[in-house]
Design a protein around this nucleic acid. Structure first.
Lengths: 113, 113
DNA sequence: CTCGATTACGAGCCCCGTAAATATG
DNA sequence: CATATTTACGGGGCTCGTAATCGAG
């Protein structure tokens, strides 16, 4: 499964239709149709019910969409964290302690950072 | 990003080396090398430090691995839930209530399921 | 009638395998 | 020395676009 597929699912759910979602995603309707079918094949269940005015999540679809939202968010968070590390906004603070170092000079050193 | 890539990362971390991980994954070592580089390109950071005896996670790598573990688990959980739904082990229980239905016959009906 | 599904075709990309040479700690 | 990286080559699969047609609520 690709993270892109999660966005596809969420877009279809948001727009309530494959055609509209495809337009919003900047892709063709047949491509998105196939993408959704791909995911449904991987889960082994119909995730959307096709109606005359578009699509609506099935019960299984609702459950999977909830998980998809969660996973998509955590993936984005992971990338954000990496971006933060990259731009130096955030770092990993490591504190080492050795009994041979006087506590006073240790904290003085920390403070000077 | 593909979920497969998460497994690649975790395997490399587990085995402490790209060569060994590649063997465990049943793929070639150059392919896994490129896969890791792919992920590192997407995160914009080096996730593993190359040593003489294999590789070790960098600080950024440790952070990303933790998130990767979490996401991989949640993805598996999502698939498991779908599998459970599919095989009827689990379902979505919906209870509807209408004042016009006598409570006694309602519960009698539920019990008969 | 509206929207999704399907078909057919092809283009392009991506991932991987193999094999050998190179770099690094 | 062991391990990872790089290079070159090719195969295979997957994803998408287009265009047109079919199917169903």
């Amino acid at each position: 499964m690709e993270t892109r597929d999660l966005d596809y699912l969420l877009a279809v759910d948001e727009h309530g239709g494959i055609g509209k979602a495809a337009e919003a995603l900047g892709m063709s309707q047949p491509a998105l149709t196939k993408a959704i079918q791909r995911v449904e094949a991987q889960t082994g269940l119909a995730l959307f019910q096709r109606t005359a005015h578009g699509v609506a999540p099935t019960q299984a679809g609702s459950l999977f969409l909830a998980r998809a939202r969660r996973i998509a968010l955590e993936y984005e968070d992971a990338l954000k964290e990496m971006r933060a590390l990259r731009s130096g906004e955030q770092g990993v603070l490591s504190l080492g302690y050795s009994p041979t170092v006087p506590r006073r000079s240790f904290w003085a050193h920390v403070a000077s950072c």
